[in-house]
């Protein structure tokens, strides 16, 4: 008994170690690629930073400050050390350290992606279940088409049309941006998640205003994750509904509702967690295109603004941050998977 437990814990340690190695190499790969983009592709990274009208002595000084006279591998080591300590250099556009900028804009993107994923999961999962249970029916076809269109439509275009219809014509939602200028100075956010902050401070009019701003971009992002989530839910549910334990549950006399929601969906939930996590990561990325349309002051808008101004430090900093969040989400979904499935649960 004791020996078995020891073997099990040794296995757990080995698994954890392997996990760490995977995360570390992935992160190293991310840094290598951004290093490659920022330092190797440009013919002269100094010019990329300063522009070609800088005086010669400034160019020389910057070259030394950036460590460009060192061999490439040393540059990479320095680059990694800086990136790991959160130093992505100075943004040319805002003249702030890139990390400071990102810290300011990131909560906006997180809030948008979170609300979007909530919308996508809360609607997408039931739709997928419905499609699987009523397989081949009209409802199944409709869910399929909703999903296919979601896969096929350019998000920035749909965002423009949504603005045209819901803001300009119907006036149901607020204009682009995150919050009305009126509240910009009276409202002092704590967490950076405006919905949470407004709720916390019981500023109901602010909450209403923030909601009117976030609902349209979040719904759009939600639609994209809905397309993905409903489709995957359908296929997982179809798989579960064919299993023998469903026959056993029927033989016990359980109602169809209980069989579907408590048995089949509970099993489908195990892979679904990964899907929802991936769609959350996808929305963080989708925000790059949506935020420009909605003037949403988040990471996406920051990256695209920097792109337009050839501010490579900011672009690469943003890329590393989004990449890190991707890695983190993958890690988290893996852990969630383990806790949801008793077969892989660490004990």
């Amino acid at each position: 008994m004791n020996g078995r437990r020891r073997a099990r814990s040794r296995k757990a340690v080995a698994a954890a170690l392997q996990f760490l190695v995977v995360v570390a190499t992935t992160y190293l790969g991310l840094l290598a690629v951004t290093f490659f983009i920022g330092r190797v592709i440009p013919i002269d990274p100094v010019l990329a930073v300063l522009g070609d009208r800088a005086p010669a002595h400034v160019v020389e000084r910057t070259r030394e400050a950036m460590g460009l006279n060192l061999p490439l591998y040393q540059q990479f080591v320095i680059y990694c050390r800086q990136a790991l300590s959160g130093d992505f250099g100075i943004s040319v556009l805002t003249t702030n350290p890139v990390m400071t900028d990102i810290r300011r804009v990131f909560p906006a993107t997180m809030e948008l992606a979170t609300v979007g994923t909530l919308i996508g999961a809360l609607i997408g999962v039931p739709l997928g279940v419905l499609a699987a249970v009523k397989r081949g029916s009209i409802a199944d076809q409709i869910v399929r088409v909703i999903g296919l269109v979601g896969y096929s439509v350019p998000i920035f275009w749909l965002a423009l049309l949504a603005l045209l219809v819901f803001y300009a014509r119907l006036k149901w939602v607020a204009y682009p941006g995150r919050i009305d200028i009126v509240y910009e100075y009276t409202f002092s956010p704590i967490t950076g998640f405006y919905l949470v902050d407004a709720l916390w401070q019981r500023q109901w009019d602010v909450l209403r205003d923030v909601f009117r701003h976030i609902i349209l971009p979040a719904s759009l992002l939600g639609y994209f994750s809905l397309a993905y989530i409903s489709r995957m839910t359908r296929s997982f549910m179809l798989n579960e509904l064919q299993q023998e334990y469903i026959v056993a549950a029927r033989a016990k006399g359980l109602s169809e509702a209980r069989i579907i929601w408590a048995h089949a969906l509970r099993n489908a939930a195990v892979p679904l967690v990964t899907v929802i996590a991936l769609s959350y990561a996808g929305l963080l990325e989708g925000s790059v295109l949506t935020e420009t349309v909605f003037s949403w002051p988040g990471l996406g808008l920051y990256i695209t603004n920097s792109l337009q101004n050839a501010d490579m430090n900011a672009v690469l900093g943003g890329t590393i941050i989004i990449g890190s969040v991707f890695i983190g989400i993958n890690l988290l979904s893996d852990l969630l998977y383990r806790t949801l499935d008793p077969r892989t649960r660490a004990r």
């Binding site: 991310l30 592709i41 989708g286 890329t319």
Partner: peptide
């Protein structure tokens, strides 16, 4: 490693460079 990357953002960074 490449799979773990955000595709669009990475493509953006490449084009930017």
């Amino acid at each position: 490693i490449f799979l773990a990357f955000p595709k669009l953002v990475l493509a953006l960074a490449f084009v930017a460079a």
